[in-house]
Design a binder for these strands. Structure first.
Lengths: 197, 197
DNA sequence: TTGTTCAGGTGACAATGTCATCTGAAGTGT
DNA sequence: ACACTTCAGATGACATTGTCACCTGAACAA
């Protein structure tokens, strides 16, 4: 902790964690640079030594979350204890779980990345990797023929289900159906389609 | 225009239009109360005579957009010139078109409504009505049995497709498929499912 | 030991949301 | 016709925020 680069790296990490924590607990409005700095043990101006501006900091938070998601999906795919038939559901669940446990972070992950071009590139790459992992999971299940088509449909649909549930637009009163039921309906439809077509 | 209530109503309308215009052209950051006031021909403080706070103004903008969407879907459903087989696609298209032509407005429509409880209620009601119109369109096509299930799946999925396209997360390079193709794949899958099951 | 680099602190500034207060004209009662 | 009330909008003010220029002290290199 005496080294300057170590100390700087620790501060950067603390800033990212502080921003993510504040986002989770208080929503986007709670994420002020002053609050982030205070929670990270530094003052207002310090974040500017590590990020060009606020948007870039938030985009970096999103990129890390997308990277964690990609890791989770990769782990599910590689885990031999998970039955192959469960892998897709598990992968989709890890996406929905982010939405439910960290709704504000979820919105950030699927927003258009903003800020510094470097930060944007990192977020796009992380999102790309997450999508690739999903693609691989789907590829393990269906023939190479329609892998992309089915994977894209699954990913976009489950995102839509999650997003509307998170924002409260998926009223249980009206639809009489849960997000889980929607996902499993979709999966079984695609499954049937993949076998027949 | 001499009457006081008429003048006030005109100002309120101008404020809503100004906020929507600014949102379209410059994104959420461009929507400041000062800019809204200026575009509506009044000054900073005037909006507070018509809306409790900024969030309520934005929520009112979202509510109006949701109402327009509901109207469009209702019109498609009622229009005898539209072949029944096209009605669902037309209804879904009207949703996707909002996303493409007014991405910032689209995000606002599907965000959690904020601000004054009255404004929130209006937005929730408008969203409810839009969903009911979609439900009716789907109900015209499939038996009453799984109407809700299919309608919910269509609505959430098409929202997810639109949202990811709008935010740039649906890379054509990676997926080799357009949003339209995804929607038509989904519709034909549901169609097949409805006939068989 | 001396000079350099750089993480972080500090003061300042413009923009913004919000409110209290003021003003003038539209509306109302007599 | 006149005085009184109401209220849309203007104005001044304030706290908060993102951002930057500048300063400081300690970790490094020479």
């Amino acid at each position: 902790m005496v080294s300057r680069v170590e100390s700087a790296a620790a501060t950067r990490r603390a800033l990212l964690d502080a921003a993510a924590d504040l986002l989770d607990s208080g929503g986007p409005d709670a994420v002020t640079l002053r609050a982030v700095g205070a929670r990270a043990g530094v003052t207002r101006g310090a974040p500017y030594r590590h990020f060009p501006d606020k948007d870039s900091l938030l985009t970096a938070v999103a990129a890390e979350a997308l990277d964690r998601l990609a890791d989770q999906v990769r782990d599910v795919r590689a885990d031999p204890r998970v039955p192959p038939a469960d892998k897709l559901n598990r992968a989709l669940s890890s996406l929905m779980t982010v939405g439910r446990r960290q709704p504000h972070l979820y919105r950030l992950m699927f927003a258009s990345p903003a800020g510094d071009p470097t930060a944007i590139r990192a977020a796009v790459q992380a999102a790309d990797r997450a999508q690739d992992e999903f693609l691989a999971v789907v590829g393990d299940l269906v023939g190479a023929q329609h892998t992309r088509q089915f994977a894209a449909l699954l990913l976009t649909s489950v995102h839509g289900i999650t997003d509307m549930e998170v924002s409260g637009h998926l009223s249980a009163d009206k639809w009489h159906i849960t997000a889980e039921e929607l996902v499993s309906t979709l999966v079984s439809m695609i499954d049937r389609q993949a076998r027949s077509g």
